[in-house]
Simulated assay, not measured.
Amino acid sequence: MSCAPAAGLPHVEANTPAVLVLPGPLTRAEVAGLCADVRALLEGGGAAVVVCDVAGLGPPGLRSVDLLARLELAARRAGGRIRLRDPDPALHALLDLVGLRFQVEGQTEEREPARGVEEAVETGDPAV
């Protein structure tokens, strides 16, 4: 006996992030569809992070910034985050310029040190 494959997105394990490959120039309708895909991956797959492969987006511009901001908003509304894979250095600089911070795959997450924790100083260490 065989069963038909289930419709919808494939099962994603909780510790394996879902990957969404973003193609070249997109229309507004395609952006809305990608936002729905991000929500579905986070709500249905049990993942907390969706990795967005941005290598194929083409030259960075405000359209790319708008797309990534909308994807991040959709992810946060679904209780997750997006992480970028292979961003162009110019795209990374443009995102910093407009004030959007994304975690990039392979980089450690920047966090503030815990409150009340001070760095210990060893005697004999040169002053910096």
Rank of each mutant, 00 (worst) to 15 (best):
A29E: 14
A29N: 12
A29I: 11
E30M: 11
E30T: 05
E30K: 11
E30D: 12
V31F: 03
V31T: 02
V31G: 07
V31I: 10
A32M: 05
A32K: 08
A32C: 06
A32L: 06
G33A: 14
G33Y: 09
G33I: 08
G33V: 12
L34M: 10
L34C: 08
L34Q: 11
C35K: 01
C35D: 06
C35W: 04
C35N: 04
A36F: 02
A36D: 13
D37Q: 13
D37T: 10
V38H: 05
V38W: 05
V38N: 01
R39F: 08
R39M: 05
A40L: 05
A40P: 11
A40G: 09
A40T: 09
A40R: 10
L41C: 06
L41Q: 04
L42V: 08
L42Y: 04
L42K: 02
E43W: 13
E43V: 14
E43H: 14
G44P: 12
G44K: 07
G44Q: 13
G44H: 10
G44C: 12
G46R: 06
G46W: 02
A47L: 00
A47H: 11
A48K: 15
V49N: 10
V49Y: 08
V50D: 01
V50I: 02
V51S: 07
V51F: 04
V51K: 09
V51C: 10
V51Q: 10
C52F: 03
C52T: 05
D53R: 06
D53I: 01
D53C: 02
D53N: 00
D53H: 03
V54D: 12
V54T: 10
A55I: 09
A55H: 12
G56C: 09
G56S: 12
L57W: 01
L57V: 01
G58A: 02
G58L: 03
G58V: 06
P59V: 14
P59R: 14
P59H: 14
P60W: 01
G61Q: 06
G61N: 11
G61L: 08
L62E: 13
R63I: 10
R63P: 00
R63E: 15
R63S: 14
S64M: 05
S64K: 05
S64T: 02
V65H: 06
V65G: 06
D66F: 09
D66K: 15
D66T: 15
L67H: 00
L68V: 08
A69L: 13
A69F: 12
A69Y: 07
R70P: 03
R70K: 09
L71P: 08
L71S: 07
E72V: 00
E72M: 11
L73V: 09
L73K: 10
L73F: 09
A74E: 02
A74P: 06
A74D: 04
A74M: 04
A74H: 06
A75P: 07
A75I: 03
A75G: 04
A75F: 03
R76H: 14
R76C: 15
R76I: 00
R76F: 00
R77S: 14
R77H: 15
R77D: 15
A78F: 04
A78E: 05
A78L: 04
A78I: 01
G79S: 00
G79D: 09
G79K: 10
G80A: 08
R81E: 13
R81H: 11
R81T: 11
R81I: 01
I82M: 05
I82A: 04
I82H: 05
I82T: 08
R83Y: 07
R83E: 15
R83V: 15
